[in-house]
Design a protein around this nucleic acid. Structure first.
Length: 423
RNA sequence: GGAGAGGUGGCCGAGUGGUUUAUGGCGCACGCCUGGAAAGCGUGUUUUCUGGGAACGGAAUCGGGGGUUCGAAUCCCUUUCUCUCCGCCA
């Protein structure tokens, strides 16, 4: 969430910036400032009342000590009304703080100045394109047919075991996926990211920390008995490792990478465009997360984009990079780049990575701070991105590398797969 | 799952209702001392909110939440986590 102080000092800029999301924040900003003023004045009254009570309590203590019980009992009656008042103040304070909090939860991050206004994905800007769109012959198969032909991914079997959106990878399909995971993790650790293995179930506090709760509750699977959520992305456990942390300025950058399965309910989305591996309830993803000094986060975002670019280049997939418009940029992000690879047989672009800078929006909620050289504490910046999401990469690799005799493996992956060909 | 013991500051560790300050130690920072250093001595050292230009104040904070009391680290309720023993288990 945004910081009240930031909103106060940049009121117009916040309102203007959010217009790029077609989000009218005028009223919400006013309410935030009013609630914050109210909170301060109540806090003041409460503090004063408590200070008086504290003083009297110690006076009573002194009187008892001196054996002046009668005087002490007189003073006790004086405190009764003060106690009543302070009780009321503290209830009011909680109420006001809660109201302020929920106003703040409902205001999205302010897009960076480079982000263009726009309502939907149609307004996203293509900022980079690489690789030729492959010319496939008419017999070129979409990946779900390739998967069936070579018996490497079984969608029906997944339906039997669990339900739609939970494919079973078999033989070289399973190995291919494992090879990709290892390859991605190696690329990330080579770039200085520390490899982490995290829990796949998280508690409520973690869900709030990264903003999945309370708004997107329906998108996560929930284990009711234990009140735990299956992670929709490694971002949740990895970022929450640093919840309530105070780092030293020299600790930056903190770079983490983790492979995890991801679980998403994706309610109501069925049909042709979610066929095969295009959209699943369970999928694998390798994530990169950075904690950054506020002065360095934009540079870090660019480097993360370059990093993902490098991987896609090695895989030999044609791709493009989009800078998302205001309306398509995630609620918590100030700027997001999406990577899309071209799926030759489906003749469409598939999103395989999303790289974002959240500035202090996440860290404010996480209470993730650092101590600067001047001894003061500031919120850190957080960034994350996928490098990469497996299923659509696998789909594109299967489709783009198919030949009449089988599916070739990109050279860079051969040491990982330990086979050169799927036939 | 059963029984028991615990959670105190950056760390260790004392503290069974009341002295305006949570004992003491370690670590860390600064100062004194020194030719320089160590030792020694002195000062400071949780975090959050809040008043103030600042100096300097006020409030909260002893795992979390609630209660009793004029007053709670201390008593009561609740919750969570850790440890020990037993049981189960890859």
């Amino acid at each position: 969430m945004l910081q009240v102080q930031y909103i106060r000092e940049n009121k117009e800029a916040v309102i203007d910036g959010l217009k790029k999301r077609f989000f009218d924040a005028t009223a919400a900003v006013e309410r935030v400032l009013e609630l914050d003023d109210k909170r301060k004045s109540i806090q003041n009254k409460l503090d004063n009342s408590l200070a008086d009570q504290k003083r009297i309590a110690s006076e009573i203590g002194g009187l008892f000590k001196q054996g002046k019980g009668a005087e002490a009992n007189d003073m006790k009656s004086k405190v009764a009304q003060m106690k009543k008042d302070s009780k009321e103040f503290s209830l009011e304070l909680v109420e006001t703080t809660d109201a302020l909090q929920s106003e703040l939860y409902n205001i999205p991050n302010v897009p960076h100045k480079k982000v263009v206004a726009g309502k939907s994905e149609d307004d996203n800007e293509v900022v980079y394109e690489q690789g030729d769109i492959p010319e496939m012959n008419k017999e070129a198969l979409p990946h779900w047919e390739i998967a069936a032909k070579y018996d490497i991914i079984d969608f029906e079997l997944g339906v039997k075991i669990t339900g739609a959106g939970f494919p079973v990878y078999k033989g070289k399909g399973a190995k291919y996926q494992r090879a990709l995971i290892n390859y991605f993790l190696d690329k990330n650790t080579d770039a200085g990211y520390k490899e982490i293995q995290v829990p796949l179930l998280v508690n409520e506090a973690s869900g709030y920390g990264t903003g999945q709760l309370p708004d997107k509750e329906g998108q996560m699977y929930h284990c009711n008995v234990d009140d735990l959520y299956l992670i929709p992305t490694a971002e949740v456990p990895v970022t929450n490792m640093f919840r309530d942390k105070i780092l030293m300025e020299d600790d930056f950058p903190v770079k983490s990478t983790a492979y995890t399965p991801c679980f998403r309910r994706e309610a109501g989305s069925y049909g042709a465009h979610v066929r095969g591996l295009n959209r699943l309830h369970q999928f694998d993803k390798v994530e990169i997360v950075q904690l950054q000094h506020p002065d360095k986060s934009w540079e870090a975002l660019d480097l993360m984009v370059e990093h993902v670019k490098g991987i896609l280049t090695e895989l030999g997939l044609p791709f493009r990079i989009l800078r998302l418009c205001g309306g398509d940029t995630g609620f918590t992000s100030a700027m997001t780049y999406d990577f899309e690879v071209y799926s030759a047989a489906q003749k469409r672009w598939l999103e395989v990575s999303s790289v974002s800078n959240f500035l202090t929006y996440q860290s404010n909620r996480l209470k993730l701070r650092y101590t600067a050289k001047d001894g003061k504490r500031y919120l850190a910046h957080t960034l994350n991105g996928s490098s990469l999401a497996l299923p659509r990469i696998l789909a594109a690799l299967l489709e783009n590398y198919q030949t009449a005799d089988g599916v070739e493996i990109p050279d860079v992956l051969k040491p990982y797969t330990r086979f050169d060909y799927i036939a």
